[in-house]
């Protein structure tokens, strides 16, 4: 007797839980050859709202941790990802129709990227912070602080692309609501499973799957979101609309970058873009 398949239900990742969409909707995800791969939850604006609430609730605790501890947690994500690499390689091959060697190289790059950003957690302050010279008997110190809750529209690369936009935000202490790539949303949810088992507190990363054009405008206009990263927006008109909506509460906006080479060295700007500079004056003692 042949064994019955254990089919997986792909749901959302919000506040450390894996709920179905509040709307009860789902959509079909096909593999590279157009065959049914699975059904994914189709998030609604209310799921986005819940995700922002979860991200806001998680912000105080996460940003209050030491940079050293955040580095450990992000490194732990890399560790757990390494242990489940076969699952990710298989998912990438099914979703994108790529060769085993290429799938392996993407997973390698995603793990390396996490380790690279983990290392930055306790170093970014020294690089972008400063002891400013002032004309008086004071220390004048500038230090970077996380902006808050950041909405992210993830690019196409289902694993490497997602890791490359999320990791730089969380190492600095931001919390994130990310809309996974519309074409390949499944790997994002599997990555959610990795994050849920990596000591990452619930709500620090929230993953929504579904229509970019449906959810993104609600996040762009949301008054409790402090920044939005439009990296994965490919429709220029939608991008403009989102930038306009984001202006209402002066969100920090990162503009679309459709042709990014995710395998290249990332640089610091994904971290520095969503940091605020705090400058304090302190009298020099005796």
């Amino acid at each position: 007797m042949s064994r019955i398949d254990v089919r997986k239900t792909y749901k959302l990742y919000i506040g450390g839980q894996f709920p179905r969409s509040e709307s009860g909707r789902s959509f079909v995800v096909n593999d590279a050859k157009g065959r049914l791969l699975a059904n994914a939850a189709q998030a609604s604006r209310k799921d986005a709202r819940d995700a922002v609430v979860a991200a806001r609730a998680a912000f105080g605790g996460w940003s209050g941790r030491t940079a050293y501890n955040r580095a450990q947690v992000v490194y732990r994500i890399a560790e757990v990802l390494e242990g489940r690499r076969e699952q990710f390689e298989a998912e990438l091959r099914a979703a994108e129709g790529i060769t085993p060697a290429r799938a392996r190289s993407y997973v390698d790059a995603a793990i390396d990227r996490l380790v690279w950003y983990a290392g930055w957690a306790d170093k970014i302050t020294q690089v972008v912070g400063n002891a400013n010279p002032v004309a008086g008997p004071y220390f004048n110190l500038s230090t970077p602080e996380p902006s808050g809750v950041i909405a992210v529209v993830a690019p196409r690369g289902p694993l490497l692309g997602l890791v490359s936009v999320v990791a730089p935000l969380i190492v600095t202490g931001n919390t994130v609501v990310v809309i996974a790539s519309q074409d390949n949303p499944l790997t994002a949810i599997t990555l959610g499973e990795v994050m849920a088992t990596s000591d990452l507190p619930g709500g620090v990363v929230n993953v929504l799957t579904g229509s970019q054009s449906e959810i993104a405008p609600w996040l762009a206009s949301h008054m409790d979101v402090n920044g939005i990263d439009l990296t994965g927006v490919e429709d220029a008109e939608l991008a403009t609309e989102l930038e306009v909506a984001a202006a209402d509460n002066l969100k920090r906006v990162r503009r679309p970058a459709p042709d990014t080479d995710w395998l290249a060295e990332p640089g610091l700007d994904r971290m520095t873009q969503f940091l605020e500079t705090k400058t304090v004056w302190h009298p020099i003692g005796v």
């Binding site: 709202r49 806001r56 609600w218 206009s221 949301h222 979101v225 909506a245």
Partner: peptide, 9 residues
């Protein structure tokens, strides 16, 4: 207003 508000306000 048609957009989500936040506790900051």
């Amino acid at each position: 207003t048609g957009r989500y508000s936040g506790p900051d306000y």
